[in-house]
Design a protein around this nucleic acid. Sequence first.
DNA 1: CAGCATCCGCTTTGATACTG
DNA 2: CAGTATCAAAGCGGATGCTG
Lengths: 214, 214
Amino acid sequence: MRSYEEYCAVAKSLDVVGDRWTLLIVRELALRGPSRYTDLRNGLPGIATNLLADRLRELERAGVVAREDAPPPIATTLFHLTPRGEELRPVLDSLFRWGLPLMSEQQPNDAVRSHWLAGALEQTLTDHSPGQPPIEIELRPGDQPIVIQISDGAIRASVGAASDPAATLTGEPRPIMGLLLGLLELEAAQAAGVHFDGDPKVLERIRGGPPVAA
Amino acid sequence: MRSYEEYCAVAKSLDVVGDRWTLLIVRELALRGPSRYTDLRNGLPGIATNLLADRLRELERAGVVAREDAPPPIATTLFHLTPRGEELRPVLDSLFRWGLPLMSEQQPNDAVRSHWLAGALEQTLTDHSPGQPPIEIELRPGDQPIVIQISDGAIRASVGAASDPAATLTGEPRPIMGLLLGLLELEAAQAAGVHFDGDPKVLERIRGGPPVAA
DNA sequence: CAGCATCCGCTTTGATACTG
DNA sequence: CAGTATCAAAGCGGATGCTG
């Protein structure tokens, strides 16, 4: 990207991460950890392969990303965030939060990946009853399952199966997210094809309320 | 901008504010409040006028910016952030913080505006002695003067003159910022042409230390 | 197959000129 | 002051081909 040539911290940041696709590449590495080129491409549907290569080079030059040639048995290149790259998490988090209200409308051809949803959920859900025992909830939004772990006031959401879920939600991504983000009631979500299995009270424990002041 | 067509909150955010210049327009409105078209152009050196018009239209459609035709005596159009637009401040703040380390190198043809520097300073400086009486520091980085107001642990930095400054700093923007951000010692800043007037202790009270975890 | 580089048509941006 | 109009240059998207 052409530099803005402004002596301003925001402009300097955007000189590095303001290009199309760049922050989404950082998102992939932040959500999934060290990744292969092919995994990155899979998490960025629509990116031109030469652009991904270009951006990775630029991010490497900027000290945000580093590549490591994995040892012989694996024999592949892994890209990962440097400490400086990890410091971009607050930027991603604020964008996650700002974009949550836009999740209510899912365009018909929007791609879906479970790890994106997990990232969004970690930014919104809160444990309203920290005293309660730890529980897990499993989501099956068509893609891979997502497990939400609630324990001692902390929320962790990641791709994977729950061992002993207190509840499971199966259905389309949009109504599932609408329900969890607090934009949809359980009845409305069920009418939209969501199958809820478990104790409805667990929903009340974690549902995102009105947007949090950040 | 073409949509990323991803059902991800970050991608949805970037669909709205990921275009070139867009976040800088929001920065201008956030730092300066309601502004005229011409003021925006002045705060965005290098932007093509058709692009500014385009972006403002898109931001209006997205509900981030609104325009008001000021009443007859003023007879001009003012652009301002909507509440939804104000919610982008955490995004700007995180970009301000991330970009601070990049402020140490000022490219020879970087444009400088005092309100950008004020924004950066508010993100870094902290009042390390909240018990002390309120003081003001004035900066004269060539452009317009900046006043830093320190009182009760809070820092405010804005364009304008101080009434009774406890210290003044005159010189080039880069060494002044380097000194305040904690990247440069007073002697080094003075060697770089900064003229410091006042009690050096006030510097210790507010200087930014190592980057804060956000 | 993983990790690119090249080519080409299309879209976006930059610079400048012009207008109510 | 607050834009619109025009056009060249740069960037992007999609397809394809190459190399270990």
